[in-house]
Amino acid sequence: MQQTISEVNFNRISNEQVVSFIHDNELYKLNDFAALESFCPKTNCTKQFYQHHKTFFIEERLEKVWNAYKSIHPKKAWCGSMLEFGLQYCRNNNKLSYIDDEYTGAKAGQIVLIRVKALGGLAKVAVGHEITSINDEQHTLETSYLVKGKSLGSQRIQLSTCNKGFTKISHHTIYKSGSWLRDKLIYPFFHTKAIREFHSNIRKSLAKQ
């Protein structure tokens, strides 16, 4: 059997879960990544999907916070006790990016593979999502899970000004998998912890400026 020549530099991916995800889905060529599909709530019925909503606050003005969400490097956004950045693919330039590569900001069409750790490290899973929309006027950023993942769904982050000129961050998620136990008990708990870590990373990056 002829061995597949990969365009992925596995030596630059720091976690084995993302590496396994790439192998399991045979993502060896740029065209393989380009063919990935993400969930589209506009073309799918989401009436039976579960809803998850959390609100966060950052004591900085709206435009400064919005810029941080768009410009933070993935290795800083997806890092901590639960999250670890693995790899990014950009549809616009058909290019893979690794943890120490230069980052020019969030754009629609970017697919990010991360590792999520839970239960003190007993459970580790690779999660892939795509940025599907960025709206500067409404201060919204939307992402969707890859169809090949364990759950279908999308997330919407919206920023607005609250009291004292600070920024309110509303994070709304719709999701569904094939497991009632996962959807009702496991997902809400660990998703809350994961997005709390993500938004905390944004807050920390602003504090260092």
Rank of each mutant, 00 (worst) to 15 (best):
residue 20 S to N: 15
residue 17 Q to W: 00
residue 48 Q to E: 11
residue 121 G to Y: 02
residue 73 H to Y: 05
residue 44 N to Q: 13
residue 28 Y to N: 10
residue 205 S to M: 04
residue 194 A to S: 11
residue 25 N to A: 05
residue 14 S to A: 13
residue 13 I to G: 01
residue 80 G to A: 05
residue 122 L to E: 07
residue 60 E to M: 06
residue 101 D to F: 07
residue 48 Q to H: 10
residue 123 A to Q: 10
residue 151 S to L: 12
residue 148 K to N: 14
residue 114 I to S: 06
residue 150 K to H: 12
residue 132 T to I: 13
residue 169 I to H: 01
residue 150 K to C: 06
residue 8 V to G: 06
residue 183 D to C: 03
residue 92 N to C: 10
residue 14 S to W: 00
residue 52 H to C: 03
residue 76 K to M: 08
residue 165 G to C: 10
residue 134 I to V: 15
residue 102 E to A: 14
residue 25 N to F: 03
residue 30 L to N: 10
residue 195 I to M: 03
residue 78 W to F: 15
residue 73 H to D: 10
residue 19 V to I: 15
residue 126 A to Q: 05
residue 122 L to F: 11
residue 92 N to Q: 14
residue 20 S to H: 09
residue 164 K to R: 12
residue 133 S to G: 03
residue 96 L to W: 06
residue 103 Y to H: 13
residue 2 Q to Y: 04
residue 24 D to H: 11
residue 7 E to H: 04
residue 106 A to D: 07
residue 197 E to Y: 08
residue 143 T to E: 05
residue 136 D to L: 10
residue 93 N to A: 05
residue 197 E to S: 06
residue 24 D to N: 15
residue 208 K to E: 15
residue 4 T to S: 08
residue 186 I to Q: 03
residue 48 Q to M: 05
residue 12 R to F: 01
residue 96 L to S: 10
residue 107 K to W: 00
residue 86 G to I: 04
residue 18 V to W: 01
residue 187 Y to P: 02
residue 58 I to F: 03
residue 32 D to S: 10
residue 136 D to A: 08
residue 146 L to Q: 01
residue 83 L to C: 09
residue 1 M to A: 11
residue 157 I to H: 04
residue 136 D to H: 14
residue 50 Y to P: 01
residue 86 G to Q: 05
residue 138 Q to W: 02
residue 34 A to W: 00
residue 78 W to Y: 15
residue 48 Q to S: 10
residue 207 A to V: 07
residue 47 K to F: 04
residue 179 S to V: 02
residue 144 S to P: 06
residue 65 V to K: 00
residue 128 G to C: 12
residue 14 S to R: 12
residue 206 L to A: 10
residue 23 H to F: 11
residue 202 I to L: 12
residue 144 S to V: 09
residue 180 W to M: 07
residue 99 I to F: 06
residue 49 F to H: 11
residue 203 R to S: 15
residue 79 C to P: 00
residue 202 I to G: 03
residue 31 N to M: 04
residue 5 I to Y: 03
residue 9 N to M: 02
residue 72 I to T: 10
residue 69 Y to A: 03
residue 89 Y to T: 07
residue 53 H to G: 02
residue 102 E to D: 14
residue 154 S to Y: 15
residue 30 L to G: 08
residue 131 I to Q: 02
residue 104 T to L: 11
residue 30 L to A: 09
residue 83 L to N: 12
residue 36 L to M: 12
residue 159 L to T: 04
residue 99 I to R: 12
residue 19 V to E: 02
residue 192 T to N: 09
residue 62 L to P: 03
residue 117 K to A: 15
residue 24 D to M: 07
residue 17 Q to G: 01
residue 119 L to F: 14
residue 37 E to P: 01
residue 90 C to M: 08
residue 118 A to V: 12
residue 103 Y to K: 06
residue 95 K to T: 15
residue 30 L to H: 11
residue 185 L to A: 06
residue 13 I to K: 01
residue 61 R to T: 13
residue 23 H to M: 03
residue 69 Y to I: 07
residue 100 D to S: 14
residue 174 I to D: 02
residue 104 T to W: 07
